[in-house]
């Protein structure tokens, strides 16, 4: 397979005080594919994502060590460029957090951070990203309304559009459909399917069927460790480790 690695995680350890949340994580995340991180709740999936865009900086109790290489750049060492670095990644969290402003300005805010201030270009791009996130048709007449008025499913797609608007290469999604109704979940999944041609997607989920539907690669985690990783066919079709078999068989959750 012609996989180029986009993100290379080496010996990543995360401690919260004396408890170790992530233990010696080594993962290769291929470019322009969907890598699904799978595992029971509390195994450290969210923490792993937060390491990738250094949101761990917001939690002084977390001590992070190891290497996360994105194109020869160890992002755990980057100091000045942390804000630029985060723009390489769009984040979709477990529940949507629209910014406290209008729908339009949610996107325009992200565009401004990327340096786009020209009004006509902003107009054009707001429309473009809302279309990409499958939201434009529903809200084209409501752009000046506060984002808080949208439904949860629409808010999540707005957050996706906003994440894309900083022009990232990577999308980090942390159980993005867990708060959504089935229709909105399907919207998001379909959008991911389209986006993977242009973006490297890291998707955390605990929904096995979702993983099976859209994953190219699967990483199975348990209690802060990577138990098994490989292509979706390998991991689902022929799991090597006992714990993976049990998890995929639904014995524990």
């Amino acid at each position: 397979m012609d996989q180029t690695t986009k993100i290379e995680i080496r010996d990543l350890n995360v401690f919260a005080g004396k408890t170790q949340i992530l233990k010696n994580i080594n993962i290769d995340i291929p470019k322009n594919k969907i890598t699904v991180i799978l595992g029971p709740s509390g195994c450290g999936k969210t923490t792993l994502l937060k390491c990738l865009n250094r949101l761990t900086d917001l939690y002084p109790e977390l001590k992070v060590s190891g290497q996360i290489m994105i194109e020869d750049n160890n992002i755990l060492e980057a100091r000045e460029d942390i804000y630029k670095l985060r723009q390489q990644m769009g984040l979709l969290s477990q529940r949507p957090y629209p910014l406290p402003m209008t729908i339009y300005n949610n996107i325009a805010f992200a565009l401004k951070l990327r340096g786009i201030r020209n009004r006509r270009e902003t107009h054009k791009l707001v429309m473009h990203y809302l279309q990409q996130a499958n939201l434009w048709d529903e809200i084209r007449t409501r752009l000046r309304e506060p984002a808080s008025r949208l439904s949860i499913g629409q808010q999540q797609r707005l957050c996706l559009a906003r994440g894309l608007a900083v022009n990232p290469e990577i999308i980090l999604a942390d159980e993005p459909t867990s708060a959504l109704d089935p229709i909105s979940s399907q919207f998001i999944e379909e959008t991911f399917g389209r986006l993977k041609n242009d973006y490297t997607i890291v998707l955390v989920t605990h929904i096995l069927r979702q993983a099976k539907r859209i994953a190219d690669n699967v990483v199975f985690m348990y209690l802060g460790e990577v138990i098994e990783q490989g292509s979706v066919e390998e991991v689902f079709g022929n799991p090597k480790m006992e714990k993976t078999k049990l998890y995929l068989g639904g014995t524990f959750n």
Partner: peptide, 18 residues
């Protein structure tokens, strides 16, 4: 102000004054 909202804004590349 929820930490999730702060994370969302930081993830877009905002700095602390923004």
């Amino acid at each position: 102000v929820p930490i999730g909202l702060q994370e969302a804004a930081y993830s877009l590349g905002s700095n602390k004054s923004e």
